[in-house]
């Protein structure tokens, strides 16, 4: 397995690289620059880094103003604060005028671990997907995070980048090129399609391996862009596999699974199961224990795959 790296760490490193190439890039923080790894940017570009203190709403408004004057601000904090605390600022100051603000939201999901429910964003994708003009991306690993940062800077408009706390394995293939709005088939298969994002991509791949030993050929898609969703790929996978499982470290309300269910319900209905957090808050614990407690494991993905296969309609 390749070296593990937290997506938040790749984010911080990518910003430094980006900052060297593009003087318009500025970074804002709300007293968490060591946790979001934007302290790396602050060290190299102290005049282009603004620590706004523990005041996230103001941070988002300041980011809007910087963007309106031609800068490319990356505003960073934990996902819970970036979305819930600042929702109205994201809505009115940033998304309504479609300003060029990039939100780097770290410590998303329950893999935050011991800090518990107050710090575990399990509904951030739901909030962000509901905002017109917002692009929502969940990189699965370090290399994809780096590319997503550059892609965000290259495209005008607000972006939400969902980043994680713990180190994660590399799941994207060598030479992979991130394209916003495009899912990537990591593993071909014809019996069931597993559509995953973030840390659940690795679990989906492990589940596919487990299913393979039972003779079930599972396709695995890294659906890193939640919005706009890759509808063409989704419909193709549903048509080819006739059964779909989604997997995300997020509530099944309003995230990847909900988006996939909505698209397939309209475009190509097939048996579907959503692996995710079942409308609950998180809690304290070790990340791996929490993943087991909330059913975010390869075994659960494989179980969901068998369930949808059993409900398949004959061709």
């Amino acid at each position: 397995m390749n070296a593990r790296e937290a997506t938040r760490a790749s984010y911080g490193a990518a910003l430094v690289e980006l900052g060297r190439q593009d003087p318009r890039v500025v970074v804002l923080d709300a007293d968490l620059s060591k946790s979001t790894y934007t302290s790396l940017f602050a060290r190299e570009f102290p005049h282009r880094h603004f620590n706004m203190g523990i005041a996230e709403q103001n941070m988002m408004g300041v980011a809007a103003g910087l963007a309106s004057a031609g800068k490319i601000p990356f505003a960073s904090t934990f996902a819970v604060f970036a979305t819930g605390r600042c929702f109205d600022q994201l809505r009115v100051s940033i998304c309504y005028p479609a300003l060029n603000v990039k939100i780097g939201a770290s410590h998303a999901g329950i893999t935050v671990g011991e800090d518990g429910a107050s710090h575990q964003a399990v509904e951030d994708l739901a909030l962000m997907c509901a905002l017109p003009n917002m692009t929502v991306v969940v990189p699965a690993d370090g290399p994809e995070t780096r590319q997503a940062v550059f892609a965000a800077a290259a495209q005008a408009g607000p972006w939400y980048l969902r980043l994680g706390r713990p180190p994660v394995p590399v799941v994207t293939p060598p030479g992979y090129r991130f394209q916003v709005g495009r899912g990537c088939v990591l593993r071909e298969g014809s019996d069931v399609a597993i559509i995953a994002c973030g840390v659940m991509v690795a679990e989906a791949l492990a589940a596919a391996g487990e299913l393979d030993r039972e003779g079930i050929r599972a396709a695995v898609v890294n659906m890193s862009t939640i919005k706009p969703l890759d509808v063409d790929l989704l419909v193709r996978m549903a048509r080819e596999c006739r059964a779909v499982v989604t997997a995300e470290e997020h509530s099944v309300v309003g995230g990847l699974g909900a988006a996939v269910a909505a698209v397939l319900g309209e475009e190509y209905p097939v048996p579907l199961r959503r692996v995710g957090i079942q409308d609950r808050f998180g809690q304290s614990g070790k990340p791996e224990d929490l993943m087991a407690e909330y059913g975010l494991t390869a075994a659960e993905v494989a179980r969901a795959a068998r369930a949808v296969i059993s409900r398949k309609r004959p061709r």
Binding site: Q57, N58, G61, G65, S68, G70, K71, R91, V92, P97
Partner: peptide, 22 residues
């Protein structure tokens, strides 16, 4: 600036001012 939800304009203005100063 797009406003209407009160309390947000001074932050936006501050962001503009910081950009101008940079």
């Amino acid at each position: 600036a797009s406003t209407g939800s009160l309390g947000q304009g001074l932050s936006v203005g501050l962001g503009m001012a910081l950009a101008g100063r940079l």
